[in-house]
């Protein structure tokens, strides 16, 4: 999967949870949950959405590594290889 395509999937999943998100405002190097108002339920639903679309397992132990949008993209890229 191309980087652009992956990014589109992640942003679409995010928008399904937080429709108010404006993609151009998202900074890949800032903590995602600070930029978008996501509580733990939203966060869980976001990860479930990625799990269902991309068929990747995301153990809870890995949550700590998923802070910025960049982290999420890198993590998924590695998983999908």
């Amino acid at each position: 999967m191309e980087e652009q395509e992956l990014r589109a999937v992640v942003v679409a999943t995010l928008k399904s949870i937080a429709p108010e998100v404006d993609e151009s405002d998202l900074r890949p190097d800032r903590p995602l949950r600070n930029q978008v108002d996501l509580d733990s339920m939203d966060w869980l639903n976001f990860l479930i959405g990625l799990h269902e679309k991309l068929k990747v397992e995301i153990p809870e132990a890995d949550y700590a590594r998923l802070v910025t949008l960049g982290d999420v993209l890198d993590y998924l890229k590695a998983k999908l290889k």
Binding site: S40, I48, I58, P59, A61
Partner: peptide
């Protein structure tokens, strides 16, 4: 909670709430 969620698929994970 971490232990309980360890073996669970993401769709059945518990939240502290």
């Amino acid at each position: 909670l971490a232990k309980a969620n360890e073996g669970r698929p993401i769709t059945t994970r518990l939240l502290m709430a």
